[in-house]
């Protein structure tokens, strides 16, 4: 809808609005039209269109870039739910291309090879909302200050191992709770340490939560993983490699969607967890060389 005469718009509020519409849903990585349809049929609330899922990027190595716009457009045409796509950290030209496609959400993602060694994209310059990853409160607030309308944990993408996502969810919670214990000087020092405006930090201290929704991502492989993240405060989950690297993607996709909605109902979780076939193989974090850890990307 084009903006009408006499209307006022708070672009950031609208961006956060779409993020809120996704809460309780599941966002699934898909690499083609067929997978996008499986995801939509299973009840995904959005799909992330990318050429290689994180576990393949991890295996193949090389520079991982934004996907071919043609592939993203094909997926956009095939489903009615919102479509997201990834750009490299700091790659504003890739972001401009995705905005020109009319993508619903841009993920400035550590899963791709970073393009800028110092800066992330200035997300206020875009009409398209951005989602970014974080490992702690400082990182989350730097991204929000740059204009991110949605946060997610970085977790450790492509591992099928939930430990890092849990670490990041708990760390952000702990950092927020800690603000209550700080004096005025302590808050000023913390804002400096985090490299964010004091007003933003005060807002978080007041409300006890991030000013935008926070989702879990990076390592979700089972319905129980999704339920765990929700119980730790994530408003929903992204599932990357977990679904389509499993033995029975349609069945697992449905189960993760149900578990995300009924995350606090153990009987329901039991019901949806039965007989799903083999989950993705997974990786132990300690077996990954330090330079292979994606969560360390981003500044």
């Amino acid at each position: 809808m084009t903006q009408k005469n006499g209307t006022s718009a708070d672009p950031f509020e609208i961006k956060v609005g779409l993020a809120k519409m996704l809460c309780n849903g599941v966002i699934m990585d898909v690499i083609d039209v067929e997978q996008a349809r499986v995801a939509e049929d299973a009840g995904a609330v959005a799909v992330m269109a990318l050429e290689r899922v994180p576990s393949d990027i991890r295996r193949d190595g090389g520079v991982a870039r934004m996907s071919d716009p043609k592939m993203i457009e094909d997926i956009k045409a095939a489903v009615s739910i919102p479509v997201m796509a990834k750009v490299r950290i700091g790659h504003l030209a890739e972001a401009q291309i995705l905005e020109a496609i009319g993508i619903d959400f841009i993920d400035e993602s550590e899963v791709l090879t970073p393009a800028d060694p110092h800066l992330h994209v200035n997300k206020h310059l875009f009409k398209t909302p951005f989602v970014c990853g974080a490992t702690d409160l400082g990182e989350a607030l730097r991204r929000i200050n740059e204009g991110a309308a949605l946060m997610r944990t970085k977790g450790e993408a492509g591992t099928g191992n939930i430990i890092e996502a849990v670490r990041h969810l708990r760390e952000i919670r702990r950092n927020i709770d800690e603000l209550k214990t700080l004096s005025a000087e302590g808050m000023t020092a913390r804002a400096e340490q985090y490299r964010v405006p004091l007003a933003l930090l005060n807002q978080v201290r007041e409300s006890g939560q991030l000013p935008v929704p926070n989702f879990a991502a990076g390592g979700v492989a089972t319905p129980a993983d999704a339920a765990l993240c929700r119980q730790l405060g994530a408003e929903t989950v992204f599932v990357g490699s977990g679904i389509f690297k499993s033995e029975n993607p349609p069945l697992l996709a449905k189960a993760v969607v149900q578990a995300t909605c009924f995350y606090n109902d153990p009987k329901k979780l039991l019901e949806v967890s039965r007989g799903l076939g083999q989950a993705m193989r997974g990786l132990e974090i300690s077996k990954i060389a330090p330079e292979g850890l994606l969560a360390n990307r981003g500044w």
């Binding site: 809808m1 006022s8 718009a9 509020e13 609208i14 009319g102 398209t128």
Partner: peptide, 15 residues
């Protein structure tokens, strides 16, 4: 008509 007004780019607030 679903998604009639386009994608997120065409979202806005109005009185």
């Amino acid at each position: 008509h679903r998604n009639f007004y386009g994608s997120q780019l065409e979202s806005f607030t109005t009185p």
